[in-house]
Design a protein around this nucleic acid. Structure first.
Lengths: 234, 234
DNA sequence: CTACGGCTGTGTTCCTCGTCACATTCCAGG
DNA sequence: CCTGGAATGTGACGAGGAACACAGCCGTAG
């Protein structure tokens, strides 16, 4: 959140051009896209959209961190993914016109770019390669979800937690092995691996006691990546 | 498997035209597609392709029943889906060029149509609407998988089984509520809901004892759909 | 500075379900 | 009509983790 104005087109275009999905649009396409959408800022803990809403925009997370939350009919929540700078969300409801399949909640302050559906469809007509990129992206999503299902079926809680920490460090970590996460509570970790909060706490303690990780406040440092990988079934 | 010759183009075209994905090709497109691919027959228990193989074809299940099997590095297997007449498989590896993400195993004799990648790409160039259909299909797949993940996280074994039976009856059932499945053992049911085989057996017995279902050999009849839906968290 | 609300750390209890072990039934092929 | 291998039905046992309950902690807002 480097002090950019909400609608600094240059800054928006800069982020967009770092995303494979938009790269196919070329320099000029990216610039006009940046102008065709709307950028907004959100404080931590806000809801960008709700599961069940009609889907009228594609979103790009220009900066910040958000949770993808799926809620069952009974109010149970599972966090499907954490998204960071450069990630997109809201594609699914757009592409097939169905309601939003999950909610998006900011885990810390976020800067978000929204591209209206109509403009996206135009872009897809002008740039046939864009559809291919979406196919690739959805394909990747399908693979991630099948992995997640397999993990839930075959890994115990400790294994899922170890794997999660490795993934978080890989995707959102700062220096090597440091997972800093303002806005990510142990309850969130629990919702990410389908477990109860106390159980996650105990699993973390167990990893600490074996010197696989160190926990200080809300920052987790991975001390023994090899052992964690083993614990996570890799 | 109504005695059609393996390469009966008319019969193939008939099945293809019942599939939304191909409907956008129009009558003539379907016919030429039917001729551009290869139909094969498989016995029960055969493997159509292996997870990890390169993906060189899109498949359409003209008739029969197949399992989509995902195998972990340790050899544990989860059945991601059962596919029947008119379902397609093998899209994913095709669309992004990555290896097959799961194996396909016939659960009973099957008649399968394979369309080579090159021909599919041609079709997508000629018919831009085809990409949209794939996007819709993948979107649907993503939704199914998130549901499955939520089920694994929040439903107990009995609930997952009840839900599974309802889905199987809905998709592959004969008359109302009858799930007949030659080739689907209780081990397969277990692999579909991420549970052990003995546990599935006991859960079935439990449903029988409460008169929610009847089991005779490998045929399951749903007696009390409402109660099953409730048990499955619907 | 103090108070309050959310997060974190732990104990206790109970129940689900995995694992192992076996008996029984079913079916296909000799 | 046997016979063997696979699928099914059950029992016993133990571990993992959910649910509940509560005690320290830590920061933010009065």
């Amino acid at each position: 959140m480097n002090g950019h104005l909400p609608h600094d087109v240059g800054a928006i275009a800069a982020v967009l051009s770092g995303i494979p999905l938009f790269r196919v649009l070329g320099e000029s396409g990216i610039r006009s896209t940046a102008q065709a959408g709307l950028a907004r800022r959100y404080r931590s803990g806000q809801i960008i959209f709700h599961q069940g809403d009609p889907g009228e925009s594609l979103y790009v997370l220009l900066d910040g961190l958000v949770k993808v939350v799926f809620t069952t009919e009974h109010g149970d929540e599972i966090v499907l993914n954490m998204l960071g700078r450069g990630d997109t969300f809201g594609e699914m409801a757009l592409l097939d016109g169905s309601p939003r399949s999950a909610s998006i909640v900011t885990a810390r302050a976020a800067w978000v770019f929204a591209l209206p559906r109509a403009r996206l469809l135009e872009l897809m007509r002008e740039h046939p390669g864009l559809a291919d990129e979406f196919l690739r992206m959805l394909g990747h999503m399908v693979r991630r979800l099948t992995d997640q299902a397999a993990d839930l079926a075959f890994l115990d809680l400790g294994g899922r937690l170890a794997k999660l920490l490795l993934q978080l460090a890989d995707k959102h970590g700062h220096a090597d092995g440091v997972v800093e996460m303002p806005g990510l509570t142990q309850s969130d970790l629990a919702a990410l691996i389908g477990a109860s909060r106390p159980a996650v706490n105990r699993a973390l303690q167990s990893l600490v006691s074996r010197n696989l990780i160190a926990v200080k406040g809300r920052t987790i440092t991975l001390l023994d990546v090899a052992a964690l990988r083993k614990r996570g079934g890799l």
